[in-house]
Write a protein that binds this DNA or RNA. Structure first.
Length: 931
RNA sequence: GGGCCUGUAGCUCAGUUGGUUAGAGCACUGUGUUGAUAACGCAGGGGUCACAGGUUCGAGUCCUGUCAGGCCCA
C-alpha cells in the first residue's frame, strides 16, 4: 500500500468552483416550489415580530442595480431576523399608478383622448400588472425570500380603499383644502403636463423693460420713483401682482440726464442696462438693500385698481434683467411661491386654450396669449412706462407631443395642509431611529421647510379624489362620504368612480343644502401617486393581520427622504398621530468605478441580471456587504472581480472544513471545550467572539463590518493559521484519536457557524454546503437557527497568551523566510529551530497547552535559556532565533524530519509515533508493506 | 443657489473623546510548497490621509474656504 493511504486526507465532492450562474436558478426554483418562505415563517409563529415594510418600486422597466441593492439588503435583514428568533414576514410591494405608465401607453400608440377614461385605466392596469410579473421574476432571480404570491399592489381594491380612508381621515380633521397653483399647461393639448412630458427648445422671444410707479413708498421712496422691471413673457403683465427683489442685493435710485423721474435698478445691472434705454449719463441719488424696499407698493402699468407689492426672494439674480422681477403668481412657480408668502392670489388671465380672458381687460380679451406683445407695448407706451424691448434667445419648454410651446398657468388644486400638523410630524421624528444618524436631520429639515402638499393631479391613471361638488360648485369634502366611496372601491375597485355618475357614488338619499335639486358632480382629478405609496402603512401593515403597525424598519435609497419616507410620515401622522416606522435605514446610490453616477447615456451601467448570468448573484450579494451602503457605492467590473476573489476564498475555506469533517459525527465524536487541545481552545474562543461580533453587526445593519470581519477571520485566523497548522494533525494523527477529534470538533463548529452566519448574504452557497452536512437533518439551512454565543468562562489569560504567541510566530516566520532566502531550508519542515527565551516566555509557551513545534510547523524545536545565546544568534522583532537544517531523516508519511526513523522495525521509514498509529489503524500495512 | 452626505495605499474598507514611525483584506512583487492544487503558506514594496489656510505643544481626527463627486430641492 501507499503511505498516503495511512493518512486522513480531506475528502469531499463539494466543487471548488460554484458554477453559480447555472446552479443558482435550480436552487431558487426549489425554494419557491417548496414555499420555503412560508415554511420558515410557520416555524417562527410564536416568536416576537419583526416587520420590515417594503417600499414599492414603480412597476415599469427593467430592474437596475439600485433595485438589486435594495431587495438584497432587505433580504439579508429578513433572513437574518428569521434565523435569529423573530417572526419576520416580508410582503413585497409595487407602485402602479401614475404618469410613466400613461406615457408607456401613449408610446405604444394609444390615444387617451379618443377613449373613455375607464377604458384607458383598464389598459394602464393591464400594463402595470404585466410589469409587476416581469419585475417579480427578476427579483426572484436575486434569491429574495418573500411572499411573492401575495404582494401588495397599489392598484388592488383593498389598497385603494385603505388609501381613500386615510384621505378621509385627513379630510375629517380639516387638513384638505382647495387652492390654486401654477402648473405646466399645454394650451395645444388643453391639459396640465408633468416635467417628463416636456422637452426644451431654443426660441426667440421678446423681452420687455418697463417702469412701475411707486404708490406707497413707506417713507423710503417718493412717488416720483419708478421700479424698472423686466419680463420675458409679456402677456403675464396682465396678471402682474408684484415686483420681486433680492433681499441682499443693492439697488440704486438714479435720475438719468433729461429725465425728471427717478428709477430703481440693481446697481449690479446698471452698466449693462442703462445704454438700452439711452441713459448715457445719470446721477445715483441713493442706494438700498432689497430688504429695505420690502412691501413698498407700486401701480400696475395700466390698471389703476391693482397695486403691485414689492417682495423679497432669493431666486432673483444679476445674470440678466434689472434685478427687479415682474411677478405674476398665476404664471410662474417662483412667482407663486413668493406670492404665497406675501399673501398674493394666483391671478390668471389666460384660458385653457391659450386665449386671454376677461380678467385681462377689454383690450386683451379673446386674443391669443402669444399675439398680445404689441398690445402690451402700446399700453405701456401710452402710460409713458415703456423703456425698451429686446429679442432674446433662450431655452423654452414645449409639449413633447404637440411640439407647441407651453405656459405656466395656475389651475385649481387640492392641497393637504402640512402646516396644520407640521409640529406633530417633527415631534414624531424624535421617536424614530435613523441609520445613518444624519437621516433624521435631513428629514427634519425637509418637513420643516416644505409647503403644503399639492395632492391633486390632472390625470387619469390614479386613485380619484373622493370629492363631490354641489349645484353651486361648493366642494363636498366629508369623511363619511369618503368612507362610503372607500367601501365602493373595496368592492369594485376605483374604476367604479369613472364608470358611474356622482349620484351613484354618493350614499343613498344623500342631500345637501347647496344642491336644492339633488344634483351633484364629482371631482375629476386624481391623487398624487406619492399619496398611494405614502398610504402603504394603511394599505398593507394595517390591512394584513400578520403585519404590525408601526413597522420596525423602512429601508430605501436616500432619495426617499423626499419621497416615501416623507409621504408615509405625513399621511401616518395626519391620520393616526404617529410615525409609521420605528427605524429608518437609508442607502446611497451606486456609482461607477470612478465615482460618477450611472446612466444609460454614459454607458457605465451594470445590470444585476447580467452579473447573475455571468458571475452569479452571490457575487452581487457579497458586493452588497463589501461596501458602505450608507453612502454612495462604487461598482465596476473590476470591483466585482475583486469581490469574486473573496468569494472563492470563502468557498474554498468552507470546502476545506467540509473535507476534513466528513468522518466526524457531531454526537459521538464531539470533544467538550475543556478537554480540547490548547490551539483548539484558542480557536474556539476566536470563533465565539466572531459569532458575537457578526451578530452585533447584523443587529446594527453594519453590512460592510460583517464583510470585513468575515474576510479577516477566514484569511487570517483560519487559512493562514489554524487550518495551516491543522494539516499536521487531521491528516497525520490517528483518525479517531483525541488530537484529531478535538480539532474536528472545532472545525465542525466553525463550518456550521460560518454557513449559518453567511446564509443571509450567500443563501445559495450556504444551502449548497448544507447538502454536504450529513449530521444536519433539516431540509434547508434557512430553517436552522443562528449560532449562539457560548459562555466559555474567563478567557482573558488564554487570549493574552495566544496573542503573545502569535507575535512570536511572526518573528519565527521572518527568521524562516531569511533562512529560505539563503537556501538553508525550503519548506518549514526542513528547519530545526532554536528559540532563546526568557523565563516568562518559557512559562507562556507551557501555558499554551499545545505542541509548539506543531504550531510553528517545523521538524525540530529547541527552547533554551536566553542567556545561553551566543553573539551570532540573530534577533527578530526582539526574539532571539536560530535556524538550522533539521537533522535525521524524512518520513515519507508526514514529510517531517525525525531522529527515530525505524524505531519500529516493521516500519523502517516511519517514526515511532507514526508506526504506532499505522499498527493500530492500518494493520494491513504489516502484511502488505509499503510501495 | 439651498438642505444632507462623501473624498485615507491600485481596489474595498478601519482609524475610539486630536497624542509616538497611519492599519486590514484584496490586488501586486518575490519566494516556498505541490496531501485545500484553476488551491495553500511566508516575506516585501506601496499612502505629503483631495487641496489651502487656521486653532493647538501636537490634526487623518476640530474650524473656515476651495476643488471633485452623489442624493434631494430651487
Amino acid at each position: 500500500m501507499k503511505y498516503k493511504d495511512t493518512l486522513n486526507l480531506g475528502k469531499t465532492d463539494f466543487p471548488m468552483r460554484g458554477s453559480l450562474p447555472k446552479t443558482e436558478p435550480v436552487r431558487q426554483q426549489k425554494w419557491y416550489d417548496t414555499n420555503l418562505y412560508q415554511q420558515r415563517l410557520t416555524q417562527n409563529e410564536n416568536k416576537p415580530h419583526f416587520n420590515l415594510h417594503d417600499g414599492p418600486p414603480y412597476a415599469n422597466g427593467n430592474i437596475h442595480l439600485g433595485h438589486a441593492l435594495n431587495k438584497i439588503s432587505k433580504d439579508i435583514i429578513v433572513r437574518y431576523k428569521n434565523m435569529a428568533g423573530f417572526y419576520a414576514p416580508y410582503v413585497p410591494g409595487w407602485d402602479t399608478h401614475g404618469l410613466p405608465i400613461e406615457q408607456q401607453l401613449t408610446k405604444a400608440g394609444y390615444d387617451r383622448k379618443s377613449m373613455r377614461k375607464a377604458d384607458w385605466r383598464n389598459l394602464a392596469k393591464d400594463f402595470a400588472l404585466e410589469q409587476v410579473d416581469k419585475q417579480r421574476n427578476d427579483f426572484k432571480r436575486l434569491g429574495i425570500m418573500a411572499d411573492w404570491q401575495n404582494p401588495y399592489i397599489t392598484l388592488l381594491p383593498e389598497f385603494e380603499a385603505a388609501q381613500v380612508r386615510v384621505f378621509g381621515e385627513m379630510a375629517g380633521k380639516g387638513y384638505i383644502f382647495k387652492g390654486s397653483k401654477p402648473v405646466y399647461w399645454s394650451w395645444s393639448s388643453e391639459s396640465a403636463l408633468a416635467e417628463a412630458e416636456i422637452e426644451y427648445h431654443d426660441i426667440d422671444s421678446v423681452s420687455l423693460y418697463y417702469a412701475n410707479q411707486v404708490k406707497d413708498g413707506k417713507g423710503v421712496l417718493d412717488n416720483d420713483t419708478y421700479f424698472v422691471v423686466w419680463t420675458t413673457t409679456p402677456f403675464t403683465v396682465t396678471a402682474s401682482r408684484g415686483i420681486t427683489l433680492g433681499p441682499d442685493m443693492t439697488y440704486a435710485v438714479i435720475q438719468p440726464e433729461g429725465e425728471t423721474r427717478n428709477f430703481v435698478i440693481a446697481t449690479g445691472r446698471l452698466e449693462a442696462i442703462a445704454p438700452l434705454f439711452g441713459w448715457e449719463n445719470y446721477k445715483i441719488l441713493a442706494t438700498y438693500q432689497g430688504q429695505e424696499l420690502d412691501r413698498i407698493t407700486a401701480y400696475h402699468p395700466w390698471d389703476s385698481e391693482t397695486e403691485e407689492l414689492v417682495m423679497n426672494a432669493d431666486h432673483v439674480t444679476l445674470d440678466s434683467g434689472t434685478g427687479l422681477v415682474h411677478t405674476a403668481p398665476g404664471f410662474g412657480e417662483d412667482d407663486f411661491n413668493v406670492g404665497m408668502k406675501y399673501g398674493l392670489e394666483a391671478f390668471v388671465t389666460v384660458d385653457e386654450k391659450g386665449y386671454m380672458t376677461k380678467n385681462a381687460g377689454p383690450d386683451f380679451e379673446g386674443k391669443f396669449y402669444d399675439d398680445v406683445v404689441g398690445v402690451v407695448i402700446n399700453k405701456l407706451k401710452d402710460a409713458q412706462l415703456f423703456l425698451a424691448k429686446e429679442k432674446i434667445t433662450h431655452s423654452y419648454p414645449f409639449d413633447w407631443r404637440t411640439k407647441k410651446p407651453i405656459i405656466w398657468r395656475a389651475v385649481p388644486q387640492w392641497f393637504a395642509s402640512v402646516e396644520k400638523f407640521r409640529q406633530n410630524i417633527l415631534n414624531e421624528l424624535d421617536h424614530v431611529t435613523f441609520y445613518p444618524e444624519w437621516g433624521k436631520k435631513r428629514l427634519y429639515n425637509m418637513i420643516r421647510d416644505r409647503g403644503d402638499w399639492v395632492i391633486s393631479r390632472q390625470r387619469v391613471w390614479g386613485v380619484p379624489l373622493p370629492i363631490f361638488y354641489a349645484e353651486d360648485q361648493t366642494p363636498i369634502v366629508d369623511q363619511e362620504i369618503i368612507n362610503h366611496v372607500a367601501d365602493l372601491f373595496e368592492a369594485h375597485g376605483s374604476n367604479y368612480w369613472f364608470e358611474h355618475e356622482a349620484k351613484d357614488l354618493l350614499p343613498d338619499g344623500y342631500t345637501n343644502e347647496h344642491s336644492p335639486n339633488g344634483q351633484f358632480t364629482k371631482e375629476e382629478d386624481i391623487m398624487d401617486v406619492w399619496f398611494d405609496s405614502g398610504s402603504s402603512w394603511a394599505g398593507v401593515m394595517n390591512t394584513r393581520d400578520h403585519l404590525d403597525y408601526p413597522a420596525d424598519l423602512y429601508l430605501e435609497g436616500s432619495d426617499q427622504y423626499r419621497g416615501w419616507f416623507n409621504s408615509s410620515l405625513i399621511t401616518s401622522v395626519a391620520a393616526t398621530g404617529h410615525a409609521p416606522y420605528k427605524n429608518v435605514l437609508s442607502q446611497g446610490f451606486t456609482l461607477d468605478g470612478k465615482g460618477n453616477k450611472m446612466s444609460k447615456s454614459l454607458g457605465n451601467t451594470i445590470s444585476p441580471l447580467d452579473v447573475a448570468d455571468k458571475m452569479g448573484i452571490e457575487i452581487l450579494r457579497l458586493w452588497t456587504i463589501s461596501v458602505d451602503t450608507s453612502q454612495d457605492m462604487p461598482v465596476s467590473n473590476e470591483i466585482l472581480k475583486q469581490v469574486s476573489e473573496s468569494y472563492r476564498k470563502l468557498r474554498n475555506t468552507l470546502r476545506f472544513l467540509m473535507a476534513n469533517t466528513t468522518d466526524y459525527n457531531v454526537i459521538t465524536d464531539a470533544v467538550p471545550f475543556a478537554d480540547r487541545a490548547g490551539h483548539d481552545q484558542y480557536f474556539s474562543v476566536l470563533l465565539n467572539n466572531f459569532i458575537k461580533d457578526i451578530r452585533q453587526s447584523y443587529d446594527n445593519y453594519q453590512f460592510n463590518d460583517i464583510f470585513k470581519r468575515v474576510i479577516n477571520f477566514v484569511n487570517v485566523d483560519l487559512s493562514a493559521f489554524y487550518l495551516d497548522i491543522a494539516k499536521d494533525v487531521v491528516y497525520v494523527e490517528a483518525p479517531t484519536g483525541h488530537a484529531r477529534r478535538s480539532m474536528q470538533t472545532v472545525f465542525y463548529e466553525t463550518l456550521l457557524a460560518l454557513t449559518k452566519l453567511l446564509l443571509p448574504i450567500l443563501p445559495h452557497t450556504a444551502e449548497e454546503v448544507w447538502e454536504y452536512l450529513p449530521n444536519e437533518t433539516l431540509d434547508f439551512a434557512y430553517l436552522s437557527e443562528m449560532p449562539e454565543v457560548q459562555d466559555l468562562g474567563n478567557v482573558t489569560h488564554l487570549l493574552e497568551n495566544w496573542s503573545t504567541f502569535m507575535s512570536l510566530r511572526d518573528a519565527v516566520n521572518k527568521a524562516l523566510e531569511e533562512a529560505r532566502g539563503v537556501e538553508l531550508i525550503g519548506k518549514n519542515a526542513e528547519a530545526a529551530l532554536t528559540l532563546y527565551v526568557t523565563s516568562e516566555q518559557k512559562a507562556l509557551l507551557q501555558n499554551l497547552n499545545a505542541d509548539v513545534r506543531l504550531l510553528l510547523m517545523v521538524s525540530q524545536l529547541y527552547i533554551v535559556d536566553a542567556n545561553t545565546a551566543t553573539a551570532d544568534v540573530k534577533s527578530y522583532d526582539g526574539v532571539l532565533i536560530d535556524v538550522k537544517h533539521a537533522v535525521g531523516g524524512v518520513s515519507p508519511r508526514d514529510r517531517m524530519f525525525h531522529e527515530d526513523l525505524g524505531a519500529d522495525e516493521a516500519f523502517p521509514e516511519l517514526s515511532q509515533h507514526e508506526a504506532d498509529i499505522v499498527r493500530e489503524f492500518y494493520p494491513e500495512a504489516l502484511t502488505e508493506g509499503f510501495e
